[in-house]
Structures are given as C-alpha cells and as structure tokens.
Amino acid sequence: MARERVPVVAGWFGGEGEEFRLTGTRCRSCEAVFFPREDAFCRNPECGGRELDEVPLARRGRVWSYTDGRYRPPAPYVCDPEREWQPYTLVAVELAAERMVVLGQAAPGVGVADLAVGMEVELVPGVLNEDEEHLWMTWHWRPVTEGAL
C-alpha cells in the first residue's frame, strides 16, 4: 500500500518534478517577497501594505552558508529515539531574485565536504519523517551538476 505524501507545513511548498517550488508571498505595495509565506500584512516595517500575492520562489540559488547537525535536536523535532542518530547538513541558500536567504537540509548524501560558499544548488523534494501510513515531505537543497536543469 502506498503511503500518503503529506507536507510537514501546509502551504510552504508544492508541485512535482521541475514544478516543485517553495511558496512565498509578494507585497503588492513594496514588492517585498516573504518566506515562509505571509497572508495577513507586509512584514516590511516601512510598508503598510496588506495585499499579498502567492508567488513560487526560485528553484536555484547559491550557498550562502552551511553547517552540520551532529546532535539529536530536542522536541518538537520528530525522530525515532530507537534509531541511531544520523548527522545532517543544513544549508542557507541565497535566492537572488527574491533577495532572501532560505534555510533547509541538504539532500541525503550531501555533506559539508560537498559544499562551498557560492556553489549553485537546486531545490528538490525530500522526506523529513515517515511512518506506516505517511511520508512527511519537506524540501532539500542539492548541488547542481553539469547538464542538470
């Protein structure tokens, strides 16, 4: 039986394949883009705008910074305490068009030795957790390889 794919946070990302994107919002007044999305008011302190449009964010960006997580985070982070802890890599990615930096995990198999500041990376779907009925979906950043779209 196939497990249901459920986003860990509804409304933050969606799509399949090349259409997989993080979802932000853009203020109609000042053009500022926000992620995570904002649906009530413009977060720009110099703007009083309240009209926001949903926008897909860029799929590619450049590594701004990165680090590894070598410890098991405390609750509410979801992990099986019976399983051996597996370190993970966090990547801060600059999206030039949106003028923002978005944090996310690196794709499985990508460690700090595989990354460099300024390296181009792309957004890919990932699994944060799973159980017998669900795959809890998130996003990951993966280095762009030659010839990749």
Rank of each mutant, 00 (worst) to 15 (best):
M1T: 13
A2N: 14
A2G: 10
A2V: 14
R3K: 15
R5C: 11
V9A: 13
A10Y: 10
A10D: 12
G15F: 01
E19R: 13
E19A: 14
E19H: 06
L22M: 05
T23S: 03
G24S: 09
T25S: 15
E31V: 08
A32M: 13
F34D: 07
F35K: 00
P36M: 03
E38W: 04
A40S: 08
F41M: 06
R43G: 11
R43Q: 10
P45Q: 13
G49A: 03
R50K: 13
L52A: 08
E54G: 12
L57A: 05
R60Q: 14
R60F: 07
R62G: 01
W64N: 12
W64C: 07
T67S: 15
R70W: 11
Y71F: 15
P76Q: 13
P76V: 09
Y77F: 15
C79H: 14
C79A: 09
D80F: 07
R83P: 00
E84N: 00
Y88A: 02
T89D: 04
L90Q: 08
L90G: 04
L90C: 06
V91N: 05
A92M: 08
A92E: 04
E94Y: 12
A96L: 05
E98H: 08
V102A: 00
L103M: 03
Q105W: 02
G109I: 10
V112T: 15
D114A: 11
D114F: 06
L115D: 05
G118C: 05
E120Q: 14
L123V: 05
V124K: 10
E130K: 07
E130T: 06
D131V: 06
E132F: 12
L135S: 01
T138C: 10
R142I: 12
R142C: 09
E146P: 02
E146H: 02
E146C: 00
G147Q: 01
